[in-house]
């Protein structure tokens, strides 16, 4: 399958990645090549094959509902590029 620059642009929006026109065109070409290679999987009939999402024969472990100390707020906020009054700050959200 050929991937068009428009598709790349759309996926870029989903992934919140700004892409220049040149980059979009280059990516469309590169991804097309990769996806064409990936399509070799179509040779395999996998209708009756269970998908693997975990290689482990494990169930999900559970922890007891016991409180553990949170991080100090100064530490939580220490790496934030912008914070104010104990909050993280983002550009105004318009719903």
């Amino acid at each position: 399958m050929k991937i068009s620059p428009e598709q790349v642009q759309k996926v870029g929006e989903l992934a919140r990645l700004q892409l220049s026109v040149d980059e979009t065109a280059a990516l469309a070409e590169q991804l097309s090549r990769l996806v064409e290679h990936f399509e070799q999987l179509d040779e395999l009939d996998t209708a009756a094959v269970e998908p693997t999402s975990h290689v482990l024969p494990l169930g999900c472990p559970e922890r007891p509902d016991v409180t553990v100390a949170s991080l100090a707020r100064e530490l939580v906020l220490s790496q934030a590029p912008l914070h104010e009054d104990g909050y993280f700050v983002v550009p105004k959200i318009i719903d």
Partner: peptide, 20 residues
């Protein structure tokens, strides 16, 4: 505690204090 960590679920705490 929260679903995936041991932070308290208490309502009304000062902002970003029940955070890990």
């Amino acid at each position: 505690t929260k679903l995936f960590c041991g932070c308290s679920t208490q309502f009304g705490a000062p902002p970003n204090t029940n955070v890990c």
